[in-house]
Structures are given as C-alpha cells and as structure tokens.
Design a binder for these strands. Sequence first.
DNA 1: CTGTTAGCGCCTTCAA
DNA 2: TTGAAGGCGCTAACAG
Lengths: 348, 348
Amino acid sequence: MNPIEKPRRPRDDGAITLQHVADLAGVHPMTVSNALKGTGRVSDITREKIQRIARELDYRPNMAARALVTGRTGSVAISTGPMSEHFYAHILHLLEAELKTSDYKMLFLRSREIGQDLSSTLRNNSVDGVIAIDSFPDLRELTRVSSKIPCCVYAGVFDPNDVITRPVDHIKVDLGDAVREAIDKLLSTCERVAYVVSNDIMSDVNEVRVNVYREMMVAAGRTPEVIKLGIGGDTSRRDLTRRNMVEYLKTNPVPDGLLCQNDEMAIGVYRALRDLGLRIPDDVQLIGCDGIKDMEYFDPALGSIVQPSEEMCALAWQFLQRRLANPELPVQEATLSARFVPRDSVKR
Amino acid sequence: MNPIEKPRRPRDDGAITLQHVADLAGVHPMTVSNALKGTGRVSDITREKIQRIARELDYRPNMAARALVTGRTGSVAISTGPMSEHFYAHILHLLEAELKTSDYKMLFLRSREIGQDLSSTLRNNSVDGVIAIDSFPDLRELTRVSSKIPCCVYAGVFDPNDVITRPVDHIKVDLGDAVREAIDKLLSTCERVAYVVSNDIMSDVNEVRVNVYREMMVAAGRTPEVIKLGIGGDTSRRDLTRRNMVEYLKTNPVPDGLLCQNDEMAIGVYRALRDLGLRIPDDVQLIGCDGIKDMEYFDPALGSIVQPSEEMCALAWQFLQRRLANPELPVQEATLSARFVPRDSVKR
DNA sequence: CTGTTAGCGCCTTCAA
DNA sequence: TTGAAGGCGCTAACAG
C-alpha cells in the first residue's frame, strides 16, 4: 500500500510557514530553519536564496511552535505596582529602555496580583523570566505555593521582615540612611514632625520608614505622630490623601514638618496644605519618598527620598539575562541605597 | 541578546502535562482536556476526579502547545506612547483595569516602534489582537507594509490628514471643539495668546490644534505666535520644555495667554513661569491638553483639554473583544469628544 | 460519555 | 552541507 502524500491542508489564515519557504527554495524546511537562524552550516548561496525568498514571502516564524519545542517563549514578564502611581510608570519606562536592545517581548502583569497572576503565568510557559518590582512580601507567598518558578529577579524596597526563604536573585533598595537623613533635617528645624502613611496592602514594605521615624522621634525626646490617611478602592491615592489630609489639618494642630510614605501622598499633602492656604516651607516643611520627577515641578519643588531606579532596573535586567543564559548560576544579589534630596520644600 | 539562542530547556524539566494527569486518573488525555476546559461531555464523577488530581499536581496547560493548535495565544498587545508621559501611563492603567476581568494577558509593545515591532509581533502569532493608542500615522505605514494583521483597534487623537486606507476598527478622539473653546477663553481675556509646541515625531497628530489656533487667531485679527520648543533625545519632555521656555521668555515679550500642545509641556511651562517669578493666572494664563490628573494638584490648578480616556479605553476593549469573537464583523468606529476644563490657571 | 487519530509549525538528533 | 525522522503538549474531529 503506497502511502499517498496527502496535500497539506491549506491554512485558513494564509500564514507563511517554513514549509512554504522550503518549497519555493527547493530545499528541506530544516535547511531554511538553519539558514534563517544562522545555526548549522548552510552554503552561502543557499542561504542567500532562502533569505531572499523568506523576505519576499514576509515569512515570520510561529513563536508558539518554536516555544513548544524549545521551551523558550522569547518574552519576560514585568510585575510592578499600579500604573496610576508615577513611580511604577517610570520603572516600566526604564525597563522598557533596557529590554529595547534585546529581542524579548514584555508581558505586563496585572499589578498586585502576584499571588495568582504571577504564579499561573510563570508556570505555563508564557514567559521565560520575570522581573518583579516591590514584591518581596508576595515572594514569601509565592515561594510557598509553587516550587518551580522560571528565572525570576526581585527588586525593590526591602523590609527586614521579608525573609527570603528561597535562594532567589534580588536587588534590595535600602531606604534607611536616606530616611534618617531626612528626619534629621526636619528635626533640626521643626517643632512637630509627623509621618504620613496610608494603611494599604503595601504598608508592610514601608515599615522600615515608620520604624525609623518612631525610633528617631523617641531618641530625640519627641512624641511620634503618625497620620494614617487610609486608602480607598476607586479613589486615587493622591485624591484620598488630599481630602483626608484637609480633614486632619482642620481638626488637629498643624505639624510644621511632614515626611510622607511616598511621593504620591506628598503631592496630595502639598495640595491639601495649599487648599488651606498654608505655605511651604514657611509654615510646613514637606518631604516625600520615591523620587519621581514630578516633585521638581511643583512650586516650591518638593524634597524627596530618591530611589536608585535607574541602577535598579539596569541591574535587574542584567541579573535576569545572566539567569536566563545560565539557570544554574549561584544566587545574584545586590543592595542599593536611596538618597535624600532636599529641595525648596525643606528649609536650609 | 537573542532569546532563541539560549540553552534549551531540559526535556525533563518536571513539567506536569496532560498525560501525567490522564495517567493518574486512568483516562485518556482528551478526557482530561475536556474535563478541565468544560468542553465536550464528561461525567461529573470523572470530572471531579480529574479536577482533583490536576489540582494536586498543580497542572498548568502549556500555552505554547495550545496556541500552536488553536491559533490563539490568549494575549493582546497594547501599543502606546512612552510611559514617561503620564497620559499614556494612565491609558495603560485604564486598559489594565478593562482586561482585568478577562483571561487575556497584556503584551506591552515598545512605544513608538509600531512600524517594526507591531507588525512583526502581530504576524508571528504572538498575540490575538492589538489596541494601538495614538497611532493613526503609523497605521498608514503599517497597512502599507503588511496586508494581514490580526484583530486590531486603533484609538486616539485623530487628524484629518491621517487617511484610513483600510477598513479598520477605530475610535477617534475629536479635540476640535474643546480647543476652540479654550482659545476663545484666552482670546477674551488676553492680549497675546501663544501656542506652545514641540516639533517631535508626534507633531503631525497635533496639527488639529495648531491649525485651529492659527485659524482662530487670524479670524480674531491677531497674530499667531507659535512657540516651538524642540525635543531632545534623552532629556524629558518636561525638562526640555522648562529650560527652553525660560530661554524664550527671557528673550521675548511675555505672552499673557498660553495654550500648550499637551499637559507634559504645560507642566514644564508652569515651572518655567514660576522660575521667572511670573504669576499664574495674573501674569500668564495657562492651558494644557490631554487632561492628566496631575494638573489639579498644581497651585494654581492647571486648566486642560481633557480627553475622554475612560470611555476610549472601555470602548477600545469592547471593540477588540467583538472583533476577536467574530473577525468577519463589519468595521466598528466611534468618535468621542474632548472637553475643555478651565481651572484656576485660567481667569474667569 | 470516552477514546482514537492526526496533526499544529518548528527544532533536535542523527543519517546521508 | 543537506535531508529524514520524530516529537514538543495540546486539541479538532470523529470513532467507539
């Protein structure tokens, strides 16, 4: 019985495959594959012919098929906080610039759904690796749930409470010294120094700041004043901060020095202060945390504790590349320090 | 760095496959597939058994394999402007919220590389569809290059010059009326009304604004004054605007009414004016364009031409979903209008 | 209701 | 230097 070569079912979507190119070039698909990828040895004449035909046909390799056989998808996932916070938008911007030179595609993970989204995304061959920003708390949870994760680099503000239970590549941002410097600055020129926080899901990564604040206040013989402004579902962090801060200032004596958990809140506080006609820095000195560019554009420019975002992103991508190239590599880790940048919102 | 040149994933990577689940359940892989996806008919008892085993094994379907056979990847690409501009970060934020309820993953395309990135990404089965923001100019180019594009929705500021050569789903944002209203406002209370632009790659989509401005100035018997601030490679739009605007104001008579091409520039201009001690709105009235939230937090709050971003993103996702469900659908199109929101930076 | 067959498009391995 | 065989994990279509 002669096996009759069944004609290939014509693809309904008309996509060009390796086979098509091979047919036109009069060679085996394998030769096309090698010629196009530069792997294996293919004669120059054949290669050029194949390349020409592939170009004419506008051939694009099917990534799914390739991924199926190689186990590599050619994409990495980025997990950050919400894009409504400028800090994370900037991070994404920086990472995008880093990945630009590579052929990797960026999968943008839903912010703060690490537990579900990250682990499910990573385990089903959707990406080759991950860069997770400010997810150390989730790391705890994640490593508990799934034992096998692809190449993964964690980076961001690190809290001593976040114990890293498994060896994993990471970059810690140390806020400690900068926070101390900022508070020192306020203590030296203010009567009442308060710390403004929101008690949201991220609050535990911020314990460094609160703790340092509390310690320093006590050490200076002052009474800590932590202003909790809460956080709402659909209201933006800034807006909520602004409104709640206005309320607070109406019903409490006005502190003359404010350190905010992050820049988003500092901007909300800035607005609240101006709503009430309070002058910065004359009546109240104001300092944020994160170091988004926006701070410089306010009047007066707002001081902040600036995270080393550029270095962090560059290093994260470097770590991930190395890990992708060699999964057996020993754990890579680094620590970067934030720095206090006083601006006009802080008296000299 | 080329993803496919990386070392091959070890065959025996311990990944759980359909086969493993089937073996343990004592059924055929096909039954497992049906049971887990809810397709086909599977007895309740078998289904529950399979689900239990799949859960115990923490089975995750290999998306590459599924994509290969179904032609669907379960992800959509988002193409926007750079994340360094808050407007686009907000767009991404909104789209993320839209896609949250679906199972689609978001592929984040390098901004402004539509020509290469978009067409190559889309043609190789990496995504099922695309939402492209503010890419009407690129659309021209793109449709010329590749004839077959997957489901694709274009949305954003539309310029009459951008002729849509092929039937494609799109949502146009019409700035016209709002711009007219803003300029009217300035004309009624200002001596010298100028328009601030940057001559970057996006400038052609902004011609609506410049053109409207020119027409109205002429109609009002005024002399158009278009301030071109240029754009630099590594310098942020805001910073460049700030610096160049300071220069301009030092060497030219100060206009008392400024309409800016977008909010980023408006913020840069705000800073430039304050650098020179000019008061807003007393000395200069200021209006931006796009409507990012930030505008409300400055002192004074900055007026702007607010784009209907929420509606645009919701509609874009709606269009794409419909298109994905039925590629044969007739072209979907819609037009939304921006609105002028004066704030304290504009005199009443 | 469940199992069988036959690939999806590509790459790895090995033979020619 | 090129070709052939086989399979990656999954599912459509059809068989029992």
